[in-house]
């Protein structure tokens, strides 16, 4: 068990290292000059003032140091939780900008991922080998998963938002409101949350349902299912076993899909102008805010790695085959 997790942690550590390095490299070797864009935004026309500003910003961001030093500083800053200063919202620290956006993204992602996984698996298992459902719901599921997030999100915004007028289509809360704990604000928050959540949920739901249905059919053809059926075990018992065994690979699937789901959430946020991390990324790109971009990516990478690790742990807890396999290794 110890060795298994040791190895896993090592892999995650290496991934983190590579991610940070790539993250550090990208803005530095990308076209575009953040300092230049700051100066342009400041709208100063005197050449002397421009020069002074350039010197100031360059040293502030550390661009005048040798590359290795920049890299070392980057790591040092990272451990202090310092991701630099946002150019877009100068002079707010990037960490603060991210911390403000994170609750929105989490409030979208966590329920969407968990609920779609749970409901999709339940539904897929239920639909498996029930002909009328397989003939009706399955094609719908295929369409849902094949639809790009963007499309579905836009369609929903148009249908339920613009045409039916039930839900607002943009923002995290009403423009006129100030964030707080008032009932009005919370209600507006919930209302704005529905469409982005639903679009994410639906697409993922279809995928899980189809995957589960196929897994269940596979399990129902497994030897143990045939043996139980030959001994006259009721369908209920066989299906229960099949479900439990089919859920295990779906947990791995969840780990694999996590990145895709996060990416989907980012797109959704952009479509609905939802003030989460995806929205930040869009703003960072539009404003050539490299630090913000860097910080956001880093944050996402770390989040995905942590989530993957949690899934690894869960998997070991629920699959006796892995658990006993590791027991043998340790003994």
């Amino acid at each position: 068990m110890r060795r298994y997790f040791g190895r896993k942690l090592l892999v995650y550590g290496l991934t983190f290292l590579v991610a940070v390095t790539v993250n550090w490299m990208i803005p530095r070797f990308m076209p575009g000059d953040p300092v230049q864009s700051m100066i342009a935004r400041a709208n100063v026309s005197q050449p002397a003032a421009v020069e002074a500003m350039r010197a100031h910003y360059t040293s502030l961001f550390g661009f005048d140091l040798p590359l290795w030093k920049q890299y070392a500083n980057f790591w040092a800053a990272l451990f202090r939780g310092d991701l630099g200063i946002s150019v877009w919202l100068f002079p707010t620290p990037v960490t603060d900008v991210i911390v403000r956006a994170v609750p929105y993204t989490l409030a979208l992602l966590v329920p969407a991922i968990l609920l779609s996984w749970w409901a999709g698996n339940r539904f897929g298992a239920f639909a498996a080998r029930r002909r009328w459902l397989e003939n009706t719901a399955l094609p719908v599921g295929y369409v849902l998963t094949a639809t790009p997030y963007m499309w579905l999100a836009i369609l929903m915004a148009w249908g339920l938002g613009v045409v039916a007028g039930i839900f607002p289509v943009a923002g995290g809360y009403g423009f006129a409101l100030r964030p707080g704990w008032s009932a009005e604000f919370l209600g507006s928050l919930a209302l704005h949350w529905v469409l982005p959540f639903l679009s994410l949920f639906l697409v993922a739901f279809g995928g899980w349902a189809i995957g589960m249905r196929n897994m269940i059919i596979y399990e129902l053809e497994a030897d143990y299912a045939n043996y139980l059926a030959a001994l006259g075990a009721p369908r209920r018992l066989i299906r229960r076993y099949a479900f439990r065994n089919a859920v295990l690979p779906q947990i791995t699937g969840l780990a694999l899909q996590l990145g895709v789901l996060v990416a989907g959430a980012l797109v959704t946020e952009i479509v609905f102008s939802y003030p989460g991390l995806g929205h930040l990324i869009l703003q960072a790109i539009q404003n050539q805010d490299f630090f913000l971009l860097q910080g956001t990516f880093l944050f996402i990478v770390v989040g995905v790695l942590i989530a993957n690790f949690v899934i690894d742990v869960v998997y070991v807890l629920v699959d006796p085959r892995i658990r006993t396999g590791m027991g043998g290794e340790a003994a």
């Binding site: 497994a222 030897d223 143990y224 045939n226 043996y227 139980l228 030959a230 001994l231 006259g232 076993y241 439990r244 065994n245 295990l248 699959d319 006796p320 085959r321």
Partner: peptide, 21 residues
Amino acid sequence: RFRFREVSIIPQYAMSAMNPT
């Protein structure tokens, strides 16, 4: 109704006949 009580089987695939989990 007959299975297990009246007719039973030892399958060829005894190695994988039991639910692994």
